[in-house]
Design a protein around this nucleic acid. Sequence first.
DNA 1: CGCGACGTTGATTTGCCTCAACGATTGTGG
DNA 2: CCACAATCGTTGAGGCAAATCAACGTCGCG
Lengths: 195, 195
Amino acid sequence: MITATQFLLERIKKHVTLTAAEEERLTEVCLVKQMKKKQFFLQEGDVQRYLVFVVNGCLRSYSVDENGFEHILQFAPPGWWISDMRSMLEQTPASLNIDAVDESEIILISIPDLERLYREVASLDRFFRILSERSIATHQHRLIDSLSLTAKERYTSFCRQYPSLITCLPQKFVASYIGITPEFLSKMLKEPIKK
Amino acid sequence: MITATQFLLERIKKHVTLTAAEEERLTEVCLVKQMKKKQFFLQEGDVQRYLVFVVNGCLRSYSVDENGFEHILQFAPPGWWISDMRSMLEQTPASLNIDAVDESEIILISIPDLERLYREVASLDRFFRILSERSIATHQHRLIDSLSLTAKERYTSFCRQYPSLITCLPQKFVASYIGITPEFLSKMLKEPIKK
DNA sequence: CGCGACGTTGATTTGCCTCAACGATTGTGG
DNA sequence: CCACAATCGTTGAGGCAAATCAACGTCGCG
């Protein structure tokens, strides 16, 4: 049984090395928080004042369009980070919402703490560089998918990329993520399997 | 009249500080290259062995689907970086193509040089962290746009974000970037201006 | 000049959406 | 523990945004 913060440290130490003192500094600024299903972490218009790491459960980020429809940008299962990056970097009102898909446990690091940490622990610059670069690679592929694939292909691609998520997400969340209506996804799934 | 490398250094020093020795190290590994219009920097299947910074002109990255249609992921005017991030990070065959939209001047840094630099110049971890985080913010908004906006709205959004590009790009490139056919963009632009 | 790339226009098709109705499941308060 | 409401997935009829396909004019360039 490991603690939330230990889980976070393990994740970081997969990519960079930390001294005991650095681990200590990091641990000090971590806030562990329990989230109930559907509980908001961030609402459109708020400023994102904390960086979020998911320990257990699952969060999602999404925007709501002028007609009230949700469009899911990201799911964050355990080990993932999630944010409205623009709001976090510029400390401006968010255009995204972030809430818990399931009961979840998360770690928060406040932005001022994070900035202090960057000064004290150089490895963190490196860690978040690596993390961000990987995130860009993921975003690039998602964008290419959305430009070049049909709805059915995007569904297949989603299942391939996130096999563990399909089982635990309501179907309408998947529809929202791949950019179609729940009705259309339902119809797609009824169809005979074609090569 | 400043050199290509000076332009790059200026860009970096907007976000981090560099010692004279560090500037020198960086300058040493920079390769300046001229690109003719339509010349490839990277083709699908190749491995991206250099990081690219655009000094003059404009590059683009795009994928080609099974029907031979191009889907443009990014334009890179002066001051921008461009890459197939997955290919660059994992040194695996690229799924994207990168070529010059116009005659261009670019700076290359080989991946082994870059990794050496990260060890020698800690500020570069920080610089590319900041750069990558901003890139994520941009990608997030692009994705939200593609999920929630109509073709017309995506066009408007593109014009707002890249006013300088609309004038110098062929219309079909813009269509490809926003995810519609050239024919449909042409029809959209003929329409009477509506509220 | 003549060829190829680009933008335009029209006719037709289609992938996906909209709206509405309905059953099954969940969860919630009495 | 049941009753009711809310949420979710399903199904069908009809509609629309955008794609497809084809033809044509224009321009820049070798």
